[in-house]
């Protein structure tokens, strides 16, 4: 990947991170799109799995800094999601809109499952409701946002796939 494309991807990544910390507090919905997941997944498929894991860890630490009660949980989940996304993209996926949407959906859902399991702050029923109801909703919203971002920044994101 050329340095211009690296710079563009980094810019889009920063933009999505900023959106995450700006739009979500404004919306304050029960289920919300996760801009961090979109940012990580978009970046992860363009770098090596190890770098994606590092990127996920750093971004997760950023999010954890603002939620000390679950410190480390987001970092762990995003590291795993980033690594897996990068590895899976290299193995399976091609550039397909529907597959990308599915990719975002599964990524967000997996993140939520990991997060809920590690945070250890809910009862079993609450965990079940979150995983079975709210997380899919949030994942669907995240997939939608991911697709919109892909559509809007298609030219910017045309990059050499790893």
């Amino acid at each position: 990947m050329s340095w211009q494309k690296v710079a563009r991807t980094a810019l889009l990544f920063a933009f999505l991170v900023a959106l995450h910390f700006t739009v979500r507090p404004l919306l304050s919905w029960r289920s919300q799109p996760d801009f961090l997941i979109v940012a990580i997944l978009l970046a992860a498929v363009r770098v090596r799995p190890g770098v994606a894991a590092l990127l996920g860890f750093g971004t997760g630490l950023l999010a954890d800094a603002l939620a000390p009660a679950t410190f480390g949980v987001t970092a762990f989940a995003l590291s795993v999601i980033g690594f897996t996304a990068s590895w899976l993209k290299a193995v399976f996926f091609s550039d397909n809109v529907a597959l990308h949407a599915f990719f975002f959906f599964v990524g967000k859902w997996a993140f939520d499952v990991l997060f809920i399991l590690l945070e250890r702050q809910r009862t079993f029923l609450e965990m079940a409701a979150q995983v079975a109801l709210w997380s899919p909703l949030s994942a669907a919203q995240t997939a939608l946002v991911g697709l919109v971002v892909l559509m809007l920044f298609r030219g910017m994101l045309e990059a050499n796939q790893t």
Binding site: P49, G50, V51, A53, L54, G56, F57, G60, L61, D64, F71, G72, V73, A75, F76, S79, V80, F83, L118
Partner: peptide, 14 residues
């Protein structure tokens, strides 16, 4: 190794 390091650090933070 990077993945393991990141996850270990994250678990340590938890």
């Amino acid at each position: 190794a990077l993945l393991v390091a990141c996850t270990l650090l994250a678990l340590l933070a938890i």
